[in-house]
Design a protein around this nucleic acid. Structure first.
Lengths: 199, 199
DNA sequence: TCAGGCAAACTCACTGGTTAGTATACATAG
DNA sequence: CTATGTATACTAACCAGTGAGTTTGCCTGA
């Protein structure tokens, strides 16, 4: 790859791309600013021209993952066969599939929150919290569409299973946890669909 | 504090105590070996006399939390009123209570796994995995006692909700997630108790 | 059309401080 | 006298962030 080929993308974008790969693969504190700059093919000073600090870069890294991640879950949901319960389970089954990739390292938002737990005011923490909340709200909206009772509670139970799946799969390196979480999620949603029909 | 008062506990024990507090509060990579040595009131060389590396110390830190943590969950379960479903919910309610403490920083095992996700062979990862598995097995054993069907699957669903509660509470700093997880866990167990009675 | 200016984007070389880990020596207890 | 434990002082690498200066591309005015 030539220098010109690299420069096809503007520097700021290349920095975010590099940060994405390195922070997700290695962790925040394990990756130096120098390493990100080198991977982006620029000098550290240029990085500091575009981002005012490492913390700022970390926040931008998470921001850049927000929409793509949400979109992915929505696609998994929408393109699944069956009723809402099946579609919810599909998210977990796709997640299990992803987790089997050797480069899978859990949820970047959860891992960042775990690593920065001692800095509750860190900008990245707020971005992570908002991202997770958006997913929970989107789920609740799907349940409202289906006129399920207490959509917020069901959505919350699903995200609990989802983040549980992320965590346990990272600890055990076993994608079967997401499949079990999917079964639990499906049966929770199914129970509420049945309740609605009877009523 | 005199030197003698410090020496009441052997150095090794004081190092583990210091590592416990610092690694849990601040994170693994955020805490230097110097900081642990200083908190323990010894020099770094003494620390390296007792532990061969920082990685070794991290593994010992997690090992030291294994039994106390399991014991705590068992106590919460056993001292709760009601049937098995209520006792399972009690674990989540006590967890929510703990999480409201300002010094609460999630589950040390999960946070360590998140931070060391790029080092799958790290000794601490194995200890974390075994700890979580022990809790899952202990739960399954409780369900076997009650002659519930498929105790392993129920136990796994409960730990998924539990680790989900740990994660979401860390991200949102909101103990309500553990309470919702408790409701979900209780109704899963209750459903299986009812199924058993009908049969 | 082109000189001149200017700001954005960039590089090289550096600072002060921190990191994990160690060489050497000294103390104390059995 | 030997094994265990401790301290001082060090290394070599690495860290986030910066000072000073250079290139690039675009706009302006004659």
């Amino acid at each position: 790859m030539t220098v010109n080929a690299k420069k096809a993308k503007p520097a700021r974008e290349r920095i975010i791309d590099a940060a994405n790969k390195l922070f997700y693969q290695e962790g925040i504190r394990a990756v130096s600013v120098d390493a990100v700059a080198e991977k982006a093919g620029i000098t550290k000073k240029t990085l500091y021209y575009h981002f005012k600090s490492k913390d700022d870069l970390v926040a931008e890294y998470l921001s850049s993952r927000d929409q793509p991640n949400l979109k992915l879950f929505e696609t998994w949901f929408e393109s699944a066969e069956g009723d809402t319960a099946d579609k919810v389970e599909a998210i977990f089954l796709e997640l299990a599939k992803s987790a089997r990739h050797p480069k899978w390292k859990g949820c970047g938002f959860l891992r960042t929150a775990a690593e920065l737990a001692n800095l509750p005011g860190h900008p990245a923490m707020k971005i992570g919290s908002e991202h997770k909340k958006k997913f929970e709200d989107w789920l609740a909206k799907q349940f409202i569409k289906n006129q399920l009772d207490d959509p917020a509670a069901i959505a919350r139970q699903i995200v609990l299973l989802m983040d549980g799946a992320f965590s346990t799969m990272l600890v055990h390196r076993d994608a079967a946890y997401a499949e079990e979480a999917g079964r639990a999620a499906k049966s929770i949603v199914r129970a509420h669909i049945d309740a609605e029909i009877q009523h």
